[in-house]
Simulated scan of single mutants.
Amino acid sequence: MKFGILLAATSLLMATPALALTPAEAEAVVRVVEQLAAETGEGMVADAAEIFFDYDALGTNLVPAAGFDRASWTIAYDAVASGYMATIPQDEFNAIFEEPLARLAGSALPDDQKAMMREHMEGLIAEAQAAREQGMAHADVVRPLEDRLHTLFFGEFGE
């Protein structure tokens, strides 16, 4: 679900310092994630830097071969993820949340539960928007990789 992909844990992105991301680092992150996504069947999500790092450490060791240690991988991965989120036009970004909000509104839940869940979802959307805004610093660097990143975030893997 697109909503879950962008909201998976934007709190991690919020805590990541906005360090300069180089085009070479961005390309390396995308290349490694493409290879790991093909192997695992899992795409890129906002908070998965350490998951990919740990999986890679079990055998392929693509991350260190690309010149990253755990800390530098996490910083670069998070910059690429938030930078990609920043490249999504605002109207498309907003549309990602329309379906889950509509499903909630149309659910059979009691009104008090709907209100509580809507408040929670609005908080997550605000966090995603903040991460997106933080990613503006990296948007130009990741823009040439936008099509590949779209596939990594919203594509099908392992089929």
Rank of each mutant, 00 (worst) to 15 (best):
L21P: 12
L21S: 12
L21Q: 10
L21Y: 08
T22D: 07
T22A: 02
T22E: 08
P23S: 02
P23L: 03
P23F: 04
P23C: 05
P23A: 03
A24K: 09
A24W: 08
E25S: 11
E25M: 15
A26Q: 02
A26E: 10
E27D: 14
A28P: 07
A28I: 12
A28R: 13
V29H: 05
V29D: 06
V30L: 12
V30G: 07
R31K: 14
R31V: 01
R31C: 01
R31S: 15
R31G: 14
V32T: 11
V32I: 11
V33C: 09
E34S: 15
E34W: 08
E34R: 00
Q35W: 01
Q35G: 14
Q35M: 10
Q35I: 03
L36H: 03
L36Q: 12
L36R: 09
A37I: 01
A37W: 09
A37L: 04
A38D: 12
E39W: 04
E39R: 13
E39M: 09
E39P: 01
T40L: 02
T40C: 00
T40W: 05
T40I: 03
G41K: 11
G41Y: 03
G41W: 11
G41E: 10
E42Y: 13
E42P: 00
G43Q: 02
G43H: 00
G43D: 08
M44L: 10
M44N: 03
M44R: 00
V45H: 04
V45Q: 10
A46I: 12
A46N: 14
D47H: 06
D47F: 00
D47Y: 07
D47W: 01
A49I: 01
A49M: 00
A49R: 11
A49T: 00
E50Q: 14
E50W: 02
I51P: 01
I51N: 07
F52R: 01
F52C: 03
F53L: 15
F53M: 08
D54E: 10
D54Q: 00
D54V: 06
Y55P: 05
Y55M: 09
Y55T: 01
Y55G: 00
Y55V: 06
Y55S: 01
Y55H: 14
A57R: 06
A57K: 10
L58S: 10
G59H: 13
T60C: 03
T60G: 02
N61G: 08
N61H: 15
N61M: 07
L62T: 03
L62R: 15
V63C: 12
V63D: 08
V63A: 06
P64A: 04
P64F: 04
A65D: 07
A66F: 08
A66V: 08
G67W: 07
F68P: 08
F68S: 09
D69V: 06
D69L: 01
D69N: 14
R70P: 11
R70W: 04
A71F: 08
S72F: 03
S72L: 05
S72Q: 13
S72R: 14
W73H: 09
W73F: 11
W73A: 10
W73Y: 12
T74Y: 01
I75R: 09
A76T: 10
A76C: 07
Y77M: 14
Y77C: 07
Y77R: 11
